[in-house]
């Protein structure tokens, strides 16, 4: 039995309705103690957002997996490391510097950022470059709304995202596995695309630290590593940003890193993926299933060359 399309949901994956309705209660009960220590101040705590047309109807990956199986190398390279060590991250106070080729550079506090736009529920597929995927109910707002705050100059072509480094809290940054701070980037039009969001929560609650608290990028049609966690700086540039993964291995990680089943990672195929919780593999979809929405960003580009 093979999943015939992306909308195929095995019966075992469907959470019983009564449990689903009580999901927040469960989360509070089970994760409440653990979360209580690192929730942002009450006024910054995101509530449940409004529904979005961009959300998938696929069944979300359970909270336990979403928050227990993470790549966040600052806390260690094992998938369990972020959940084990991220509690050490200090997220209050938190500011984001937005500068570079802009007319009005700004340092925004988290409270100000949360006032920029209403929060939306965005249930997105996430495809990791390693060949696994999840469905995550994010809570966030369009990145475009944040970027509009600073009035970009005409010369700005790219946006660079710099993420937090707290050496005393992050055991992973003591080793030079990547060039810290972790840097990622988008072309300006990619960043302004309505699918690109800043997430401040998941499963209706504040973002757990291992998922990139207090705010992170989510660009669902690209491999997961493009969506930087715990963002501290956004810089508008004319030159293409040099991301940490491009520096670590330019032959394997390109700037665009769009999910593409036809362009293999040099060391493994990207044609299929294992959805966390499933036994059989699924076919990976071009642009992670967001082809219709984003394909026009890349017209005329050879995506095998610009991988």
């Amino acid at each position: 039995m093979k999943p015939s399309s992306e909308t195929y949901i095995p019966p075992s994956e469907i959470t019983p309705q009564n449990l689903y309705n009580r999901r927040r209660e469960f989360l509070r009960l089970s994760a409440g103690l653990a979360l209580a220590g690192f929730l942002p101040p009450a006024e910054a705590k995101p509530g449940s957002g409004k529904a979005s047309v961009f959300s998938t109807t696929e069944t979300p990956t359970p909270f336990k997996q979403v928050t227990g199986y993470n790549n966040f190398y600052e806390f260690g390279t094992r998938k369990e490391d972020p959940a084990a060590y991220a509690h050490q991250l200090r997220i209050t106070p938190w500011t984001v510097l937005i500068d570079g080729l802009v007319r009005k550079p700004k340092t925004l506090g988290l409270d100000d950022i949360l006032k920029i736009a209403p929060l939306e529920d965005r249930i997105y597929r996430l495809r990791c470059v390693e060949g696994w995927s999840m469905v995550i109910p994010w809570l966030g707002f369009p990145l475009a709304a944040l970027l509009r705050q600073v009035d970009a100059l005409g010369s700005a072509k790219y946006v660079e995202f710099v993420t937090a480094v707290q050496p005393d809290a992050m055991p992973g940054v003591r080793h030079k596995i990547l060039d810290w701070p972790y840097v990622e980037g988008l072309r300006l039009d990619e960043a302004m695309h309505p699918l690109s969001i800043m997430a401040v929560g998941l499963y209706g609650d504040a973002l757990p630290k291992q998922n990139g608290a207090p705010l992170r990028l989510v660009v669902p049609w690209k491999y997961g590593f493009k969506s930087g966690k715990s963002i501290v700086r956004i810089r508008f540039t004319e030159q293409m940003p040099h991301s940490s993964w491009m520096k670590a291995n330019p032959a394997e990680y390109g700037f665009y890193s769009n999910v593409n089943p036809n362009v293999d990672h040099p060391r493994w195929s990207q044609a299929k993926e294992r959805r966390i919780g499933e036994f059989l593999k699924r076919k990976t979809l071009p642009f992670n299933g967001y082809e219709q929405q984003v394909t026009q960003l890349y017209t005329g580009m050879d995506l095998k060359k610009h991988f």
């Binding site: 336990k64 997996q65 227990g68 199986y69 998938k79 369990e80 696994w132 294992r274 966390i276 919780g277 036994f279």
Partner: peptide
């Protein structure tokens, strides 16, 4: 059996 191999037991 015990589902103690993490989120991606096959890996």
């Amino acid at each position: 059996q015990a589902d103690s191999l993490g989120a991606n037991p096959i890996e």
